[in-house]
């Protein structure tokens, strides 16, 4: 397994003491608890516009719904009414795409103020966004641009996460993104980078198992090594989704069923991490709600099976 020892062999250990703490010593009391002490909500689905009518009419007994924060950061109108209808019936968590935590531009305080107000309204137990950058001076790319895996980037991101967590007064979970390019500047593996940021920032991780698979394919690393290396108590939520294989690379399209190999990786992750709130994402070529919920039920069945066989502490069995 690659980790702190691998880094030390490359003369990097001087400025990377936080990496050594990764697997050995946690930096806060809550980091000693599974999921940073946050609840396991079961298996949910992303709340998407094509499903609104069905969900409001049929009130499916899904464990929780994940809201895209930006869809509700508006001043008025139907989105806010829909939000209140969701909050009246379901537990929700918020997931964002615009935080741009890795950008070199200043934090967007207008965005953060709106986000904080929304988190207060939804009572989300944590808030997640991506470990990436999204903007440069003068332009927002609206994409999840990968970061170079460097010590400089670890320090930069961790400091901003701490500021955001303090401001929001809420645990932030950083999601590993799918990526399609590799930087020459990178000196760390992706999993060491993610671990270092999470430990240094004392924040959560949203582990997207599909993204691990996609990036493993695109960059030729071993997905199991990744899953085994991240700090287990910091994973507060898991994402699962489908993707599109273009041959030379895989694109993270959220347009299909979860593939078998990702289900296997999910099972592996649960065996190590215990039961973690799990969310199915489906964002293009969206099928009917029951099809998406079917994937969540499949995840729940795997969770229950793993919980029975492993009996990990902190796990709660959820009905499917």
């Amino acid at each position: 397994m690659q980790g702190a020892g691998w880094l030390q062999g490359r003369g990097l250990q001087g400025g990377l003491s936080f990496l050594e703490s990764n697997a050995l010593v946690t930096t806060s009391n809550h980091a000693r608890l599974p999921r940073l002490g946050l609840p396991d909500l079961g298996c949910g689905v992303g709340f998407r516009i094509p499903h609104y009518a069905h969900v409001f009419e049929n009130k499916p007994a899904v464990d929780f719904l994940e809201l895209i924060s930006e869809n509700f950061l508006v001043d008025g109108g139907l989105p806010l009414k829909n939000l209140d209808r969701v909050l009246a019936e379901w537990r929700v968590v918020q997931h964002g795409v615009s935080l741009g935590i890795g950008a070199s531009t200043p934090l967007d305080w207008e965005y953060l103020r709106r986000l904080k107000a929304l988190t207060r309204h939804t009572q989300t137990p944590w808030v997640t966004d991506h470990l990436c950058w999204t903007r440069v001076p003068g332009a927002d790319l609206h994409d999840l641009m990968p970061l170079p895996y460097t010590e400089e980037a670890v320090r930069h991101v961790a400091e901003r996460v701490r500021i955001v967590q303090d401001f929001l007064e809420l645990t932030v979970g950083l999601e590993n993104t799918s990526s399609y390019l590799t930087y020459r500047a990178s000196t760390l593996t992706e999993w060491d980078f993610l671990s270092a940021v999470a430990n240094e920032a004392d924040c959560g991780i949203l582990l997207d198992v599909n993204n691990v698979y996609v990036s493993a394919y695109n960059h030729g690393f071993d997905a199991i090594t990744y899953l085994d290396a991240i700090p287990k108590n910091r994973v507060v939520q898991i994402h699962l989704a489908g993707h599109t294989n273009k041959g030379a690379y895989i694109l993270d399209t959220h347009s299909d069923f979860v593939v078998d190999r990702v289900w296997e990786l999910y099972r592996h992750a649960l065996q190590r991490l215990g039961s973690i709130s799990t969310l199915i994402e489906w964002d293009s070529e969206i099928p009917d709600f029951d099809t998406v919920w079917g994937e969540a039920k499949k995840a729940a069945a795997i969770r229950n099976e793993v919980a029975r066989t492993v009996g990990t502490e902190g796990q709660d069995e959820h009905p499917t």
Partner: peptide, 11 residues
């Protein structure tokens, strides 16, 4: 290049 320079280049 620094992180900011890499991002500006890619942006």
């Amino acid at each position: 290049a620094t992180l900011a320079e890499i991002q500006a280049f890619l942006g």
